[in-house]
């Protein structure tokens, strides 16, 4: 069991190290002639005016909140799904109730129109 996690640890280091090498290698051999025009922020040739960090849509925030709720829900459901073979039927139904309660929330969100793009 622990050997597996050591392997994952090594793998993570390799997976991070490989692209790091691939990204730094060209930095050594490629030309490097920066100038002000070249480093301008790309905006189809127009000079950038005003603040770059544009106002953010509230909509995105709602998606993130809903995602958080459903993410936690699935975290609860994974142990339930794994142990399903050892559970009596009513315990399965308890899991179903858990899902249905949250589906009601989804229906509410849809009814409110909070998920529609505006």
């Amino acid at each position: 069991m622990q050997a597996y996690w050591v392997y994952i640890g090594i793998f993570l280091i390799v997976a991070l190290g490989f692209p790091t090498i691939a990204v730094t290698l060209p930095a050594l051999i490629s030309p490097r002639k920066p100038n002000r025009r070249k480093q301008e922020v790309y905006e189809c040739g127009i000079e950038t005016k005003g603040n770059v960090r544009v106002q953010f849509k509230t909509q995105y925030y709602i998606y993130a909140l809903l995602f958080l709720v459903f993410d936690i829900e699935t975290i609860f459901l994974f142990p339930w799904a794994v142990s399903l073979g050892k559970l009596p039927l009513f315990a399965v139904i308890e899991g179903v109730i858990f899902i249905v309660i949250l589906l009601a929330g989804l229906v509410y969100a849809l009814r409110e129109g909070a998920l529609a793009w505006s």
Binding site: I101, G105, L106, A109
Partner: peptide, 16 residues
């Protein structure tokens, strides 16, 4: 477990 579900529902509705 079921209370967690209700709590998550409350969070969902509250956030909306």
């Amino acid at each position: 477990f079921e209370l967690a579900s209700v709590l998550l529902l409350a969070a969902l509705i509250g956030s909306i």
